[in-house]
Simulated scan of single mutants.
Amino acid sequence: MAEIMLLLVFCLLIAAAVIFKEDRRVRDELRTQLTQRDAELADARDDARRQTAEAVRLKRLVVESGRSPAERRQLDEEWQRLVASDEVVSRMREAGLSPERLVTSAADVATVQPLLERGVTGEEIAQAVTASQALADAVSAQGSVSTLSPAELVRLAGLGQAAERSGKGEHDWPPIINLSEAAGYSFAVGSADLTPEFAERLRSKIAEEVVKIMGRYDAGVVEVIGHTDEQAMGKRESNLDRDLIPVLSGKTDIGTLSPADNAGLGMARAVSVARLFRTDPRFSNVTVIPLSGGQMVLPGDAVSDGSSARDARERRRIEIRVRRPEQPTQP
């Protein structure tokens, strides 16, 4: 009985295998047929598109056959413009531009277009805008120049560039004019009287040079500094406290001054030069200030240590410096 059952099961398995195999074959045939149908359908669609395109072409030919040559030419031109426009729009989108935004900003585009036609690149325009904004911010931060017109700003910038090129900026010091006895600029011994040669050179070449320096540096003050060597002066009574100001103003002759020491001699000689400048019309709007360095300052702006009492002609000198007037301070 058991053998019969085993035989029956074996037969069933064989039958099932045959059925499964036949089912697979049927599925494979159906899949093949489906693939063929898809290919045929794709070909049919392609044929339909070609036929549609051909129909459109034939229809256009039919329509154009009834038009005049001028109408056909106009139609061709319009078609070419349409194709070109479509190409331009495609390129704009590829470059990240929005045609719609350009339409709304047509006025701005029209403003920029002349610059592009002159060869200015978009990058240069962007840099110019950035620089302009930075300049506007800088000008806004400067209250003293924020109200100036562009022309005035350009003028000031030009003056600044010219000063920078010539080394005469606002913070550059004007040159010092050094007139030493060793170079031929002398006074009478122990006196503030100018020699005729020295006085003539002061009125001509030296005054002209001082005026030029004042104009170049926008200066309004001239400082005349008298320097001496360390040789002691003979004992005498000084009258500078009483007569110095009258001599400077021209009320008293320079020869009446009697300094008692080197500090007084330096001041008296500075007054002698300052008085000559004050009588020159070119210095009518200039403040001329006499000062004394006495025997304290060596040439080159070094302070003396008091160890040289010899006859030093290079130390006996007049220095002329120019500067701008000081602004009065609020108490």
Rank of each mutant, 00 (worst) to 15 (best):
S284N: 13
R316L: 03
A309H: 14
V303D: 10
R316T: 00
G294K: 06
G300Y: 09
S308M: 12
L291A: 08
L298G: 04
V303G: 08
F283Y: 06
R321C: 09
D311H: 07
V286M: 09
V286Q: 07
S307A: 07
P299I: 15
G300M: 11
P290T: 00
G306F: 03
S284M: 11
G294I: 08
S292F: 01
R321Y: 05
R315P: 05
S284D: 15
G294V: 04
F283G: 02
V303N: 10
R316Y: 03
P290H: 01
E319N: 09
G300C: 11
R317D: 07
I289C: 05
I318H: 02
V322I: 15
A302V: 15
Q295A: 06
D311K: 02
R317Q: 06
R316M: 02
G293Y: 06
T287E: 14
D305T: 14
D311V: 02
R310Q: 14
R313M: 09
G306T: 02
R324T: 14
S304A: 06
G306Q: 07
L291W: 01
A312K: 12
G306N: 07
P299W: 12
R321V: 13
S304Q: 05
G294S: 06
D311A: 01
R317A: 04
D305F: 13
V322F: 04
V322T: 14
G300W: 10
I318Q: 02
E314F: 09
A302H: 12
M296P: 00
I318Y: 01
D301Q: 13
R310M: 10
I318C: 01
V303H: 13
S292M: 04
R310K: 09
S284E: 15
R323L: 01
I320Q: 00
T287N: 10
P290I: 00
I289N: 08
G293S: 12
V286Y: 05
V297N: 04
R321W: 08
T287F: 13
M296N: 11
P290E: 00
V288Y: 10
G306C: 04
V286F: 05
R315H: 11
D301A: 12
A309T: 10
S308V: 15
R317K: 07
E314Q: 13
A309Q: 13
L291R: 07
R316S: 00
E319V: 11
A312N: 14
S304H: 03
F283D: 03
G294N: 05
S292L: 00
G293L: 03
G294P: 05
E314K: 10
G306D: 10
D301W: 15
P299C: 13
D305S: 15
G306Y: 06
I318R: 03
I318E: 03
G306E: 09
D311L: 04
F283C: 04
S307K: 08
V297H: 05
R316V: 01
V303M: 13
R310D: 15
S284V: 12
A302L: 12
N285K: 11
F283L: 02
R310H: 12
T287G: 05
A312V: 14
R310Y: 08
A312R: 15
S304R: 01
R313D: 10
S308T: 12
L291G: 00
S292T: 07
V297C: 06
I320H: 02
S284F: 07
R324C: 13
P299L: 15
G300V: 08
S284C: 10
S307L: 04
R317W: 08
G294Q: 05
E319Q: 09
L291N: 06
R313F: 11
G300P: 11
R316Q: 03
S308K: 12
